[in-house]
C-alpha cells in the first residue's frame, strides 16, 4: 500500500490484486460465452426428456464434463461479479465484508452441490438419498 504508484502506458496499475481479479472475471465470462450456447443447445436436447434420456445424457462423459465446467465457471464469475456489485453499493466496511463472505459461501456451495449431483448422474449412482 505504501509503495509509490506504478504506471503502465501512463495508466496507474492496481496496488494489490484488483487487476488480477478483473482479468479472471473477464476470462471466466469469455469461457461462459461458448458454454452458454452449449447450455442453450443442451436445453433443446433435454426439454421434455424423461428420466432415462436425462440419465443417458449425463452418462456421456463429454456432457458431464461440460456441465461441470459451466457450473464452476459460472460460480467463479458470479462470485466476482457480485463482489463488484456489493463494492459499488455497500460502503460500510462491516456490512461489505459480511456480504462478501455470504456471496463467496453461496457460490462455493452452489458449485460444490452442482458438481456433486453431476458426478453422481455421470457415474450412474443410486438415487439420493443413497443408502436409505
Amino acid at each position: 500500500m505504501s509503495s509509490p504508484a506504478k504506471f503502465r502506458n501512463r495508466v496507474k496499475i492496481s496496488e494489490r490484486h484488483g487487476a488480477g481479479e478483473w482479468t479472471i472475471e473477464k476470462l471466466l465470462l469469455a469461457a461462459l460465452m461458448p458454454l452458454g450456447l452449449w447450455v442453450a443447445s443442451s436445453a433443446v436436447t433435454l426439454a421434455g426428456a424423461d428420466y432415462g434420456a436425462v440419465a443417458a445424457w449425463f452418462g456421456n462423459g463429454l456432457n458431464a464434463a461440460l456441465a461441470v465446467l459451466a457450473a464452476v465457471a459460472f460460480c467463479g464469475f458470479g462470485a466476482l461479479a457480485w463482489k463488484v456489485i456489493v463494492e459499488d453499493y455497500i460502503h460500510r466496511p462491516g456490512n461489505k465484508a459480511l456480504l462478501l463472505v455470504v456471496v463467496n459461501i453461496l457460490f462455493f456451495a452452489l458449485a460444490a452441490a452442482s458438481v456433486f449431483f453431476i458426478v453422481r448422474l455421470a457415474l450412474g449412482s443410486a438415487p439420493l438419498p443413497a443408502g436409505v
Binding site: 424423461d50 428420466y51 436425462v54 440419465a55 449425463f58 457450473a71 459460472f74 460460480c75 458470479g78 461479479a81 457480485w82 456489485i85 452452489l110 452441490a113 452442482s114 449431483f117 453431476i118 453422481r120 448422474l121 449412482s125 438415487p127 439420493l128 438419498p129
Partner: peptide, 26 residues
C-alpha cells in the same frame, strides 16, 4: 447477473431432482 444467479439455483434444483431418481424427476 442477479437473474442468472436465480437461474443457477433453479438448474441446481433440476440436477437435484434428477439425482434423486425417477420419481422425483417425474
Amino acid at each position: 447477473i442477479g437473474a442468472m444467479t436465480v437461474a443457477a439455483l433453479i438448474a441446481l434444483a433440476w440436477l437435484a431432482a434428477a439425482a434423486a431418481g425417477p420419481d422425483a424427476y417425474a
